[in-house]
Design a protein around this nucleic acid. Sequence first.
DNA 1: TAATGGGTGCACT
DNA 2: AAGTGCACCCATT
Lengths: 492, 492
Amino acid sequence: MIEIGSNIPYDFVTSVLHNTPSTSHQDRRFSRTELSQNMTKIEPIQKEQNIKEDTKKCKNPPKPRIKREKLFTTPDKLSNFLNHDSNKLIHLEPVPIFNDKSEIKPWLQKIFFPQGIDLVIERSDKSKIIFKCKAVTRPTNELDTNNIENNDTTTTENRRTPIITTNCPFRIRASYSLKLKKWNIVIVNNTHSHQCVFNPDSDEYKKFKNHLIAQNDTDTIKEFEELEYKTKFKLPILPKVISCDCGLTSEVNWFDVVIPEPKISGTKKVTKKTNINNGNSVATTAANTCNNSSTTLNNMNGNMKYDSISNFLDLNNPNINIINSKTVTPPGNITNLDEIDFTNMFATKKSVPQFKKQTTTKPSLKQQQTASLDEFNFNKIITTPSNDNLLNYSIDFNPLSQDFTDQDLNMILNSSDNGIDAFTENGPESTTATTLDTLMEPTDLSYMDFVTKDDLNLNLNYGMDVTPKDHQSQLKTLPNDPNNQFMFDSLM
Amino acid sequence: MIEIGSNIPYDFVTSVLHNTPSTSHQDRRFSRTELSQNMTKIEPIQKEQNIKEDTKKCKNPPKPRIKREKLFTTPDKLSNFLNHDSNKLIHLEPVPIFNDKSEIKPWLQKIFFPQGIDLVIERSDKSKIIFKCKAVTRPTNELDTNNIENNDTTTTENRRTPIITTNCPFRIRASYSLKLKKWNIVIVNNTHSHQCVFNPDSDEYKKFKNHLIAQNDTDTIKEFEELEYKTKFKLPILPKVISCDCGLTSEVNWFDVVIPEPKISGTKKVTKKTNINNGNSVATTAANTCNNSSTTLNNMNGNMKYDSISNFLDLNNPNINIINSKTVTPPGNITNLDEIDFTNMFATKKSVPQFKKQTTTKPSLKQQQTASLDEFNFNKIITTPSNDNLLNYSIDFNPLSQDFTDQDLNMILNSSDNGIDAFTENGPESTTATTLDTLMEPTDLSYMDFVTKDDLNLNLNYGMDVTPKDHQSQLKTLPNDPNNQFMFDSLM
DNA sequence: TAATGGGTGCACT
DNA sequence: AAGTGCACCCATT
Ligand SMILES: [Zn+2]
Ligand SMILES: [Zn+2]
């Protein structure tokens, strides 16, 4: 196993953008043919988001004039749309075989507790679980001073205890695909309306620890004990490296890394060159552009302030794959994120080079079927949502022009379908269990100035793909395709 | 068993206002002394409602200027207050011994399904169940016409299916009193934001029927089969007479009948003479007055329209006890409710005469303990909430002056504590299982014009009390006490 | 304390 | 980001 020594500051987002369903981690007990399992289907992100938008239901009867759809078309309301509806579909891959629905939540908790994200189930189903951040109720003791008029009876009872309910838009959707016989896990909206602080005292975490004890998962227990210790004494939290050791992954291909600029201000001009849209839309509007999962625009008006920065993004680590890294000024030892120049760090799938991460012997089909979560070792996948408190701010995107066309993104998509090939060292018979070695500095919020951090919007997306071996020969990289890049033109 | 042949039109309210906790139906397994069981405690309704108002919590942080309490003091907001917060605490008595919490819902469903009220549990606890009306989600297919601008992609998907959620204020609270070892069942807010239509196709009703089948409750099954049949063919629904045959009720005293005027318009002046308030309030404001559970003011601006009226209020039936019936023009065969004059039909507890309903042999204590719900026969208690769609209308109560004082109602309350005696034929040794024989025309809405019915606000409250036999000697009636009446002075 | 109120996790539908 | 029925909670008094 490859240990990654580099560090990434807290607020980066390492996202696994994954459009290609992989059967490598699937429970194949019910699959009929190996052929169907290996069918790789590219589902455009744009289409998926359109569905989400169109199936959104109003809880109350629609207000006659305040139509959500209007926000999509008027540029002056784009900022609101981005704040509230800038969805990113971040597919998590690889995912272990879950023999039971109840195994998913602990698996996600292993990943998200160190990120300071306390997950609860919002809704679940036989084939679906929607996770969200645990609601935080904060009772306040505010005296109702406006009620003194002639209700002497209730002066002592005028104290109200309003409860502040955190209504965070962050969601993780785990859905079981009957077709693919696998659980797909997708981060739906990688934004939070609150700070993400690891709280060892939360009930969910206690239940999680009890689960670990019940599962005899001593490794994970030790990891979290270390996390608790460091949190308690405000020690710098070493990056947790979560990987997939289930041995069932035939291969993992990184194909999408989106690194937003940390210093893009509201006056920066962002020129989007590509757009993922599967042809339904004739005229691509700015609003439509915002629906793209891989084109989340992040506004970074704030200045990030660290009291102490000791974690760094190591671009030299081969396990961290940053698209167009040649255009990135290697930050080396980053002591102030304001100094990082992320210009032109956007990239899309087909420019993602692939690295062989890890090679294991592919188990037999029977072994795959019986492989359970117990054999799965979490220490490579870390997904750190950022955009903390994004919803608390009105980001003005008016000066940004977004000119991506559907054709552009379709081209990218089509090329990524069979255009990624390089860097895979595996022959057709040797299967690889390639994991995403994403290094992330877990939340150590005690070192950070939240007020300013809230304005920061670092978004570091590492793309990863799991491609069945049958399709390996079709893959190639087009790292320098000009249509392949997002361009950031500063207006300042 | 006395069958009641009279009929009461649909929209009347028969409420069992019951302030005196009775131990007659309690599970006495854990009671220590018989003395404590017979302790009758009068709890003022006003006090209870004040508590409810003061402990109301805001789900969101309080809006700085829009304070709920302000509505209590400004007369121009009184109508809103009445629409949303005119609570009535209607205690249901007698109540059988519930050996399990799960027995309560079917018991209530037997009562409320024929009223067209589909109950579900809003929240439950070891010692509490809050029932509410089942939310009705009505999907509508409205085309979003404001979104055609440049989103040709989604024109076909712009159809929104908003869901109209019935947010009915009606609540029933069942709470287990550890002290009394009994379940108390209270209708908290006897108003509905919707029509109450018996729906034999509802899921809750299907579950209820399955429960009846599982319980081998053939009598109730037959009753509801008849109800279904009559509903299906729009036949006039004969009144369901629900009684308590558990044999555990020592006695039932009717003590409160409130018959609102069906034709009181918004310009009618309602002069309230009494007020229930236990002395906390120094100055009784109009807002405070509205908190009285027994002083629900009903505004009847609409004209009730029946296509066919075949059910009648039979005031000659001895089982229907209407306070101050002498002031009521006996409607006889009512063919148009507009012709009923309900003026001065309000009454309070101490003017309620008592009738012996039914006499059974009091079982031994051991028998009481083992008496279960299976031995309980429901066919006498019917509680029909009305005020349908009250919340949909803004009722202007500004022209109404409400001058009831706390002293007035306290006098009523105190007198009712030991002032009801007459009409009980049972000696101290002969215990009676007296049930409320309330006759109610179940909802047959196909005969009614809903649009106009919504404006109607019939409120027919039958008061009932369960008094332990030890207290019988203290009871007497004061039917002609002038302080005992609500006065309605028409301004028209 | 017991009584009473409400928040919210989450699976059923 | 299904809505909601329901129960496990907690808060206040
Ligand atoms: Zn969150
Ligand atoms: Zn209702």
